[in-house]
Amino acid sequence: MFSFLTKSKYSFEGIKPYEKVVILLYRHWFIIFIGILGYIFLALIPPLVYIFFSVQIGNIGLTQIFDFLTAIYYLFWWLGLFYTITMYLLDTWVVTDHRVLDNEQHGFFNRTLSEMHLSRIQDMSVGVRGVIPTFLNYGNLEIQTAGTEPKFIFKQIPDPASVKNLINETFNRYVEAHKDNVEVHELGRQP
């Protein structure tokens, strides 16, 4: 029943049978931490209201309605919290031994999925801008593709310099294994 939790560590829709995931990247933990911190403050509002106005609420005889409204508040608080977590978890960048995938979730039912073959990588640059990103070592990794296609941007990823090196190594291994950019794994499948 729960096999989907252990079946594949990095399984995703559209992965090829011969493809291996090199790295799966989310935004840096600090990005989600800020969002969760906001929700922690919001969670403190009902207890604070009760502490400061418990006498008045009791005098009017609204304790039960207060409990009910608090329960409703937490229902929607839970939705908001997990909306933030969902958006964080669905913004992913996957580097496989054949390609780079960019999954960006811009809200519910609004998703961008782009992919780029490793052979199309022309140039990579790392950008760490700001005080907190410098201290926590997160930033953007921009991949320039061949031609006039827009850049591939890994946004706010942890340790972008190491990721750049890893993609370089993966690219070199790919070039060694695929002479003249021929996909050796699919040769037998073609008619």
Partner: peptide, 15 residues
């Protein structure tokens, strides 16, 4: 639906 359908790996399913 979004977590299970579009999540990569087991972490989104666990969440």
């Amino acid at each position: 639906y979004h977590l299970v359908r579009f999540g990569v790996g087991p972490k989104p399913k666990l969440f």
